[in-house]
């Protein structure tokens, strides 16, 4: 789920940046530090949208003459939840299940959580899961819709275990959609 949240952060700037473009530098520094980072509380910070307040710089007392700024900013955060349904792109398929990416986050669907009629198949090192009537398959770069059932939150990463074994979940059949579009024209 995406959130628009207010955050604060301390930015330390070297003396050579003090001057006219200090504000831009601060923004760049903040974006560099924050975007793409992950915390357990807020999830992935996808993008900084706005700076609301920048405090006066305080020269640090560690003798390096650097200055510390407290920056308040708005950001878009991506935080997955248990039970959430996500669209993801498959990155890796093996006999234990498959990995997929939903934006910055990796998730894993084990073979027990793939519907029972889908079987693992490996032809020419191209692994995939195919349904018994061959109509649906999950292979690398395919798109799937899954539900998050387990989460592991580390300092720098969130990893999810997801299931594809429920109604309305599974491979998102793009070919069928493409056919329809073609038919209409």
């Amino acid at each position: 789920m995406f959130w628009h949240i207010k955050l604060e952060r301390n930015i330390v700037l070297e003396p050579r940046f003090f001057g006219r473009n200090m504000r831009d530098t601060l923004m760049q520094r903040l974006k560099h530090e924050v975007e793409g980072s992950c915390t357990g509380k807020h999830g992935y910070i996808v993008m900084v949208t706005d700076f609301t307040n920048i405090s006066e710089g305080m020269v640090t007392d560690d003798g390096t003459a650097r200055a510390k700024f407290r920056v308040e900013f708005d950001a878009i955060a991506f935080r997955p939840f248990k039970g959430q349904v996500l669209d993801a792109v498959v990155t890796e398929v093996n006999k234990f299940g498959f990995f997929a990416e939903a934006g910055p986050m990796n998730l894993f669907v084990s073979n027990q959580l793939i519907s029972d009629d889908m079987k693992f198949e490996s032809i020419d090192n191209a692994n995939r899961y195919v349904s018994s009537d061959k109509s649906v398959s999950v292979q690398k770069n395919g798109e799937v819709r899954v539900r998050v059932v387990g989460m592991r939150i580390d300092a720098q990463e969130i990893f999810c275990v997801a299931t594809m074994k429920e109604d309305y979940l599974g491979a998102i059949d793009q070919d069928a959609g493409a056919d329809k579009v073609a038919d209409e024209y």
């Binding site: 093996n94 234990f96 299940g97 990995f99 084990s110 692994n127 989460m151 990893f159 275990v161």
Partner: peptide, 16 residues
Amino acid sequence: SSLDAMRLLDPTTGLF
């Protein structure tokens, strides 16, 4: 457990 799957994955072979 499957929550460790990411760490077990060997990117070269695609196996755990």
